[in-house]
Design a protein around this nucleic acid. Structure first.
Length: 925
DNA sequence: CTGCTAGCATA
DNA sequence: GTATGCTAGCAGA
C-alpha cells in the first residue's frame, strides 16, 4: 500500500525559527530555520519509506477563514524579517532535496494537507502527517497518523485520545470549546481542556452539548450559553478543510531524487559544510540512496524519471503493524548465503543481531543471526531451530566457520542493539566479535538516558514504527519457549526486523549525536570503548569461596533460628519474622508499641529506623533488627552467590548494564556485585568470600571522596579547593570551618556531623532531611546548613546556579557534557519538582564520577592489554575498581594504578586513588 | 504464576 | 536528601 508523507512546512518553519539558534552565514544571511526544516525532511526521509510526499507551505492571499471572521489571526505580529528572508531559499532547497512543494494561493497549508489526506484515504493509501500543529490531529484515522518530527511525538487514533481525552473525530468540537489563542479564535470563557473533555464525554458531541446547554451548571455553563451564537463559526474556523481545489493530483507527488547540482549551490550559499561533504561521497550517515529499497530509492537513482508513478513493493506483507517491513529473506541455501556474505563483505556498516536460547549471556547458544545493510532489507540466517516442521537449515559449524572471518574482522564495521550481548553469544561458540562500531542502545542512552532503550520503544519513539515484541514470538513467563522452538517464518520476520530497525535507528540517532560534539565524544570515546571493557570483565568473572559461604550460611541459619525462638517467646506466640504484616500485628497490635511512622500504603512501618527507635524501650525490636540483618545476609548473599557460580568457568559472572542508570553509572545484576556488604563485621565476612586464585591477589583501588572533589571542581569554591589541594581530611576541615575550631580541636562528634552535611550536599539536602539524619530539629539543621554556606559561598552559589540552569535548559550536564534531562522540574506537584531539583544538584556530581571511572576503566584495560600484563579488571563499584592480580605483578600494579586512574582528567582538584591488596576483597580494603 | 510492597545492601 | 538491584511475603489471577 503506498504511503503519502505530508509535511507542514509552514508550521516547522515557524517553530524552527524560534526554537533553533540564530545561525547565519558569514554574509549575515539567516539560515537557522532553513537548516532546521531541511534536517527534519531528511529525518523523515530516512524514517518513512513513502512513495509519495509533499512539503506544504502557506501562501499569500486571503483564505476562507478571513472572509468568515475578520479577526482570524489578526492579532499576530508581522513576520520577522529574518524569518521572511528564509522562505524563498527554503522553498528552493526543499525542491532540490526532491520534495514536491505545494503553496496554494488563498489556501492555508492545513487545508491542503486535509484535502490531500482525504484523497489518499479514498485510494486506500496510508498517510503520515508531519507537523508541529496539534490541530491537525483531527485528521487522524486508521491508516492516517500524526507525527511531530521536532518533538518526536507520534499519534495514532488511540494516541490522540490518550493525549487529549477525545478521539480525533471530536478534536474540532474540543477546539471550538477551548478556542485557539494562536489563531485568535475565542472559545468558551473559562473552558479549558478539562472542562471540554468532561462535557464531550458527558454529551458525546458538540451538537448534543449545545442542544443540552441549559442543563450545564456552574459559571462555565453560563459562559457556554453566552457563547452559543459563536460556536458554529468557531467550529468552522478550527475545522481543517478536506475539499479545497488543488492545482494538481496525488499522482503528481512522487518522491523524487535530489538535484545534486542545485543542492550544492544552495548548501554553498548557506555554508552547510557538513552537508556539502555528504553530497560528495555517500557518508556513513547519509540517508539510503542506493539499490534495493522501495520506489523512492529507485527514483532517487534516476532523478530524470521524476514523473514516473512509484511502483508498489511486491514483497510488502499486508499486515498493518508490519507495514514498514521491507523485503526480508530467510537464508536456507548456500546460494543465498553466498550472496549475503558478499553483501556483508562489501557493506560499510552492517546491522547485526543474534537470536539465542537464553537471555543469560554466558549460557546463551546461537539459534540464528540476522543482518541488514540497507534500510528495509534484511536477512535471517536460521541455524538451530528445532521442531517437526522446520525446513533443513544450513549446517551450523560450516556456516559459522565461513562467517568467522567477517565476524572477527575489525575492518568490517558492525552495528547492533546491545552488542555486548551478541559478543557473549558468539564467544560461547569460540568467536571473538570484532569491529563493533556502533550500538543503538548506547546511542539512545547518551542522547536521552532517562528514556527507555529497548528496541520496541526506540522504534516507536524515533521511527513511529510498531515492532514485534519478543513476548509475541516467544510468549512470557512459565509458558515462554526458547527462540529455537519458534516457527521459522515467525522467527525470520522477528529477527530480520530487529536488524532492519537497528539500522534505521542508527541512521536517525547517530546524526543527532553528531550534532552535539560533547555527546558524540562521550559515545565514541567513553561508552563504546567501555562496552568492550565490560564485556571482558563479565567474561572473566570473579572467584568466590563457596565453601566459606556455605559455612556462613549454616551459621547464619543457626543464629536466625535462635533469634526466632527468642522473638516468639517475647511475642508470646509464633509468627513469621520476615513478614512486615505479621510483625506489625504483633508489635503494634498485640504488644501495643507506639506507631512511629507509616508506610506508603498506610500500614505502620517496621523498618530499620523505627525498630532502632523502639529498641530503646522494648526488647523485641532489637532482636528483630539482628534477625533482619542476618536474614538479608543469608538469603541475598550466602545462599545466593554459590548458586550463581557458572559450572563451566567455576566463577560468578555478573552482568553490567550500561544503559539503565540515568546519571551514567553502571548497574550490576544477576547477581548484583555492587552491593556486597561492607559496613558490618558480619557483612564483611561475605566480602571475604570473594577470593583470588592461587598465586593471585585481589587489588581494590578507589577514588577518595570523588563526588566532593567534583563538587569542589564544579563550584570552584576557594576553601574547598584548598582543602583538597593540601590533602586535608575534608570532613575534619568542614568541621573546623563550621564549628569554628582548629582542625586539631575537632571532636569525633563534630566530624561525624560534618560528614553527614557533606553527603547531604551531594544529595541536594534539605534542612528536613539533615535534621532527620542527625536526630536534631529542623531549625538546628538549617543553622548548620547556613553556617556551611557562609563558610563555603562558592558551593552555595553553585547550588543556586545549577538549579537555575536546570530550569532554563531542562537538563544538567556532567563535566564531560553528559546530559541528564529533568522533565519534572516543570511538574505541577511540588514534591516532584523538588525531587527534580535535588536530582539536578546530584546528577552532575554522580554523573561526572561515573564518567571518570569509565575513563579509568578504559585506560587501565588498555594499559594492561598493551603491556601484556595478566592482571584483569573484574569489578567496578561506582568509585572503586577491583582487579585480580598475579602476585608477581602486584608491585607494578600498586605503583602504577593510582596514576592511571587519577590521570584520566585534569580537574581543579587532584584525584586521589587509594589502593589495597589482599587474598580476598575484604582484605584488599 | 505474576506483580506489587516493604525492606535493605551498596556508592 | 541522590542512584541502583534483589529478597520475602502476599494478594489476585
Amino acid at each position: 500500500m503506498p504511503v503519502l508523507l505530508l509535511v507542514d512546512g509552514s508550521s516547522y518553519l515557524y517553530r524552527a525559527f524560534h526554537a533553533l539558534p540564530d545561525l547565519r552565514t558569514s554574509q549575515g544571511e539567516p539560515t537557522g530555520a532553513i537548516r532546521g526544516v531541511l534536517s527534519m525532511l531528511r529525518r523523515l526521509e530516512s524514517d518513512y519509506k513513502a512513495e509519495f510526499r509533499a512539503c506544504v507551505f502557506d501562501a499569500k492571499g486571503k483564505t476562507f477563514r478571513d472572509e468568515l471572521y475578520p479577526e482570524y489571526k489578526s492579532h499576530r505580529p508581522p513576520m520577522p524579517d529574518d524569518l521572511r528572508a528564509q522562505i524563498e531559499p527554503l522553498h528552493a532547497a526543499v525542491q532540490a532535496e526532491g520534495w514536491p512543494l505545494l503553496a496554494v494561493e488563498g489556501v492555508e497549508a492545513d487545508d491542503v494537507i486535509g484535502t490531500l489526506t482525504r484523497q489518499a484515504q479514498e485510494r486506500g493509501w496510508e498517510v503520515v502527517i508531519s507537523t508541529g500543529d496539534k490541530d491537525l490531529t483531527q485528521l487522524v484515522r486508521p491508516g492516517v497518523k500524526w507525527v511531530n518530527t521536532m518533538s518526536e511525538e507520534v499519534l495514532d487514533e488511540a494516541g490522540v485520545e490518550e493525549k487529549f481525552g477525545v478521539p480525533p473525530e471530536r478534536i474540532v468540537d474540543y477546539l471550538a470549546l477551548v478556542g485557539d489563542a494562536v489563531d485568535n479564535v475565542p472559545g468558551v470563557e473559562k473552558c479549558g481542556p478539562k472542562t471540554a473533555v468532561k462535557w464531550l464525554t458527558e454529551y458525546g458531541t458538540l451538537d448534543n452539548l449545545v442542544a443540552n446547554a441549559d442543563k450545564v451548571g456552574g459559571k462555565v455553563g453560563e459562559n457556554l450559553r453566552k457563547h452559543l451564537d459563536f460556536l458554529p463559526l468557531g467550529k468552522k474556523l478550527v475545522t481543517v478543510a478536506t475539499d479545497v481545489a488543488l492545482p494538481l493530483e496525488l499522482d503528481a507527488l512522487p518522491a523524487r531524487g535530489d538535484d545534486k547540482a542545485a543542492l550544492r549551490a544552495l548548501y554553498e550559499r548557506f555554508e552547510f559544510r557538513g552537508w556539502l561533504k555528504d553530497l560528495d561521497g555517500p557518508g556513513g550517515s547519509a540517508p539510503v540512496r542506493k539499490d534495493g529499497g522501495g520506489a523512492r530509492s529507485a527514483n532517487a537513482a534516476a532523478p530524470e524519471a521524476s514523473g514516473a508513478v512509484a511502483a508498489v513493493e511486491a514483497t510488502d506483507p499486508p499486515a498493518a503493524p508490519g507495514a514498514h517491513r521491507g523485503s526480508y529473506v530467510t537464508i536456507l541455501d548456500w546460494a543465498t548465503f553466498d550472496a549475503w556474505l558478499a553483501k556483508l563483505d562489501a557493506a560499510a556498516l552492517v546491522a547485526f543481531d543474534t537470536e539465542t536460547t537464553s537471555l543469560d549471556p554466558m549460557a546463551a547458544q546461537l539459534v540464528g543471526m540476522s543482518f541488514a545493510t540497507v534500510a528495509g532489507e534484511a536477512a535471517y540466517l536460521p541455524l538451530a531451530h528445532r521442531g517437526p516442521d522446520v525446513p533443513a537449515q544450513l549446517p551450523f559449524a560450516e556456516v559459522l566457520a565461513r562467517l568467522k572471518p567477517w565476524l572477527e574482522s575489525d575492518a568490517h564495521a558492525k552495528l547492533g542493539q546491545n552488542l555486548k550481548y551478541d559478543a557473549h553469544v558468539l564467544a560461547n561458540h569460540g568467536i571473538r566479535l570484532a569491529g563493533m562500531a556502533h550500538d543503538t542502545l548506547l546511542e539512545s542512552y547518551v542522547l536521552e538516558s532517562d528514556k527507555s532503550h529497548d528496541m520496541d520503544s526506540l522504534a516507536k519513539r524515533h521511527l513511529g514504527l510498531t515492532t514485534i515484541p519478543y513476548t509475541d514470538v516467544c510468549g512470557k513467563g512459565a509458558k515462554q519457549i526458547g527462540f529455537d522452538e519458534v516457527a521459522l517464518e515467525r522467527a525470520s520476520e522477528y529477527a530480520a526486523e530487529d536488524a532492519d530497525i537497528t539500522l534505521r535507528l542508527h541512521r536517525t540517532l547517530w546524526p543527532q549525536l553528531e550534532a552535539v560534539p560533547a555527546l558524540a565524544a562521550l559515545y565514541r570515546d567513553v561508552e563504546m570503548p567501555a562496552m568492550q571493557v565490560l564485556f571482558d570483565m563479565e567474561r572473566t568473572g570473579v572467584l568466590i569461596d563457596d565453601f566459606l559461604l556455605a559455612q556462613q550460611s549454616e551459621e547464619l541459619g543457626r543464629r536466625l533460628m535462635a533469634l526466632e525462638r527468642e522473638a516468639h517467646e517475647l511475642a508470646g506466640q509464633p509468627f513469621n519474622l520476615g513478614s512486615p504484616k505479621q510483625l506489625g500485628e504483633i508489635l503494634f497490635g498485640k504488644l501495643g508499641l507506639p506507631v512511629v511512622k507509616k508506610t506508603a500504603t498506610g500500614q505502620p512501618s517496621t523498618d530499620e529506623e523505627v525498630l532502632v527507635q523502639l529498641s530503646d524501650d522494648y526488647p523485641l525490636p532489637k532482636l528483630l533488627l539482628e534477625h533482619r540483618g542476618f536474614a538479608k545476609l543469608k538469603s541475598t548473599y550466602a545462599d545466593k552467590l554459590p548458586r550463581m557460580v557458572n559450572p563451566k568457568t567455576g566463577r560468578v559472572h555478573t552482568s553490567f548494564s550500561q544503559a539503565v542508570a540515568v546519571t551514567g553509572r553502571l548497574a550490576s545484576s544477576e547477581p548484583n556485585l555492587q552491593n556486597i556488604p561492607i559496613r558490618t563485621a558480619e557483612g564483611r565476612r561475605i566480602r571475604a568470600a570473594f577470593i583470588a586464585p592461587r598465586d593471585h591477589v585481589i587489588v581494590s583501588a578507589d577514588y577518595s571522596q570523588i563526588e566532593l572533589r567534583i563538587m569542589a571542581h564544579l563550584s570552584g569554591d576557594a576553601r574547598l579547593l584548598e582543602a583538597f589541594a593540601h590533602g586535608e581530611d575534608v570532613h575534619r576541615a568542614t568541621a573546623s570551618e563550621v564549628f569554628g575550631v582548629t582542625p586539631a580541636e575537632v571532636t569525633s562528634e563534630q566530624r561525624r556531623y560534618s560528614k553527614v552535611i557533606n553527603f547531604g550536599l551531594i544529595y541536594g539536602m534539605s534542612a528536613h532531611g539533615l535534621a532527620k539524619n542527625l536526630g536534631i530539629d529542623r531549625a538546628a539543621a538549617q543553622g548548620w546548613i547556613d553556617r556551611y554556606f557562609a563558610r563555603y559561598p562558592g558551593v552555595a552559589d553553585y547550588m543556586e546556579r545549577i538549579k537555575g540552569e536546570a530550569k532554563a535548559k531542562g537538563y544538567v550536564e556532567t563535566v564531560f557534557g553528559r546530559r541528564l534531562y529533568l522533565p519534572d522540574l516543570r511538574a505541577q506537584q511540588v514534591g516532584r519538582r523538588q525531587g527534580a531539583e535535588r536530582a539536578a544538584i546530584n546528577a552532575p556530581m554522580q554523573g561526572t564520577a561515573a564518567d571518570l571511572i569509565k575513563k579509568a576503566m578504559i585506560a587501565v584495560h588498555g594499559w594492561l592489554g598493551a603491556s601484556g600484563l595478566k592482571s584483569r579488571l573484574i569489578l567496578q563499584v561506582h568509585d572503586e575498581l577491583v582487579l585480580e592480580v598475579p602476585r608477581d605483578e602486584l608491585e607494578l600494579i600498586r605503583r602504577e594504578l593510582p596514576a592511571r586512574m587519577g590521570g584520566v582528567a585534569e580537574l581543579a582538584v587532584p584525584l586521589l586513588v587509594e589502593v589495597g591488596a589482599g587474598n580476598n576483597w575484604d582484605e584488599a580494603h
